[in-house]
Each structure stands twice: as structure tokens, then as C-alpha cells.
Design a protein around this nucleic acid. Structure first.
Ligand SMILES: [Mn+2]
Ligand SMILES: [Mn+2]
Ligand SMILES: [Zn+2]
Ligand SMILES: [Zn+2]
Lengths: 141, 141
DNA sequence: GTGTCAGATTAGATATTATCTAAATAAGGA
DNA sequence: TCCTTATTTAGATAATATCTAATCTGACAC
């Protein structure tokens, strides 16, 4: 994805395209994992432009609010982020906690009866088990 | 669920049945919501026996490790807990963040192809949208 | 290009959530 | 009743996130 695509997606969300904000988006887009705010902060500051901690958090919050980034639901204490855009599910490793993307597929939505007066927007699937790395040396059964 | 049931489930997990630990289990079992550690700490200490903060956290960790309690995957910063036992899914409100239980139903597991060398254990479904309370006054479309 | 200013950035303080430490206590079996 | 060891405790500390208020700058109008 090119520089202009990022710039335009920021602008169309009413966000200025600042070097710091751009760097967060660019880093997240080249990631296959789900970095924490601390990891994003560190990665962005390995090169110019520098960005303060507050700015990194501010930008993550703004990008999430704009729908360009999401905070994934995990049970750890540190928020983990990925770019929205391509729909996908997640696999979380029981052993090492790694969060991996999984191919998206449609899930039967809940029955109207169980939904009640709630307004349904989407389903999200979390698979659990052992990741490829943690599987090594593991004997099933 | 009776006193003895809790006691036995603790003992069969190799955990001593202490008043503090029992209080955490008892509170979680009467909850329909998904309290944070701070809420559990507060609730437990509204009456005897008292429990320190460290003990509340220790017990939650031990109960999770024993499989009697689980930490729910949510995107907030504070861990939220519920008792395992009855399988169910979750509905998370976009607006107020409330986590509600939803009737369990089986989900088609991912294709072996997308699973690769991972070892699959279970699927967990998260529904998103607006809870009943946040629906009030909301105009769809 | 220059001026304007709301939005953005910053360092550091503060808040929130969770874990650690080491001494004291008590559960449960012998 | 005694013994062993898991558990509890207060307080310190760590990890994560937000706030503050001074300063700066991106984007737009001219
Ligand atoms: Mn992802
Ligand atoms: Mn639940
Ligand atoms: Zn793993
Ligand atoms: Zn709600």
C-alpha cells in the first residue's frame, strides 16, 4: 500500500497526516502480528521521525476511533492492534499467547430469539489451541 | 450451586478451600456479568472474610490455571472474569463495552488447510453491536 | 509564499491495573 | 494435636495508559 493511500485514508477520516501518525499506520500495515502500543512506540522510534509515548497512544486511539485500526480482544493486559481492512479471524496460542490472523469465513449469526432487543453488527471468531511453534515436541492425546 | 460443590471443585483441582478463595468463586458464580479483579476485590470485601488485593489476584490466577474460572478476551485494559462450566459465547456492546453471555452454539471449525500445523482446541465467538440498554433511542439506518 | 489557527506533539506527572516480597498465618492430613 | 506447606497479607514495585499545559505544525485561505 502506497504513501498516498495512507495519506488519503487519514484525510478522509478527518485526521491530519502527520509524520508520527503516518509512521504508526505504516508500521501496523507491514506487520503480520499484533503489536502492543509499547512495541509500536519502540518500532516507530528506531528511526526518524521520533514520536513521544503520549503521541503514540493518542494516534492509536484516533486511528481506532476512525476505524482504520482496531484493538483486538485478547486476555492480556497490554492492548494489541492491527489494521482493519481485510476481514479475518484470530488464533490465540494457549501457551505463548501469540495472536495470529486466520482466513475469514462467515459465521451463522445468532438467532433473533437469543439476540433480543440487541442490535447485531458482526461476529468475530477466536480460535484457541497451540501455535505452530508451540506444537513442536508436543504429543497429542 | 452448593457450598460443597465449590469445595469439592477446588479440592479436585489441588487447591485448598480457603475463605478468601471460596468467596471469589461464590461471587463469580452468582454474577451474570463479567466483573474485573477490582470489582471482585470490592465485592468480596463488603463482608467477612476480608481479602487483600494480592490474594484476590492470586486466587483469580489460581482459579484460571485450574480451569474453574476464565479471563474473558475483551479489548479493555482490566481483565474480566467468569466461571467456566456452562459453554457460552459473548456479546460485547460497541458503545458501553458491556460483556453479556449468549447462548452457545457449535461453530464450524476452521479448515485443516488454514489451520496448518496448529493444534486446534476450541472456537470462541464474540458478537458485537449495541446492547439492549444502548439500543434505546437508537435509530437504525 | 505568508499568515492563521485548530489540531497535533511533547516531556513529565499522574492514574490505573497487576505482580512481587518476605513475614505471618492457617488448611488439611498424619 | 502437630506439622508441613499452601495461602494470606501490607506495602513496595512494575507495567500499562492517560493527563497537563506549553509548544509546534499541517493544511488551507489569501
Ligand atoms: Mn489480526
Ligand atoms: Mn461469560
Ligand atoms: Zn505458541
Ligand atoms: Zn451498551
Amino acid at each position: 500500500m502506497g504513501v498516498d493511500t495512507v495519506r488519503r485514508s487519514l484525510e478522509s477520516s478527518g485526521l491530519r497526516c502527520t509524520p508520527q501518525r503516518y509512521a504508526v499506520m505504516a508500521f501496523l500495515m507491514e506487520q503480520t502480528g499484533h503489536p502492543t502500543a509499547a512495541e509500536i512506540f519502540e518500532a516507530v522510534n528506531r528511526a526518524d521521525p521520533r514520536s513521544s509515548r503520549a503521541t503514540t497512544y493518542n494516534n492509536l486511539r484516533d486511528l481506532v476511533k476512525a476505524g482504520l485500526v482496531r484493538e483486538v480482544a485478547v486476555e492480556g493486559r497490554a492492548g494489541r492492534f492491527d489494521v482493519t481492512g481485510m476481514k479475518h479471524h484470530h488464533f490465540i496460542c494457549d501457551r505463548c499467547g501469540k495472536v495470529e490472523d486466520m482466513e475469514w469465513y462467515d459465521v451463522p449469526r445468532p438467532a433473533a430469539r437469543t439476540l433480543g432487543k440487541r442490535i447485531f453488527r458482526e461476529c468475530e471468531l477466536i480460535f484457541r489451541g497451540l501455535c505452530t511453534k508451540c506444537t513442536r515436541g508436543h504429543v497429542s492425546h
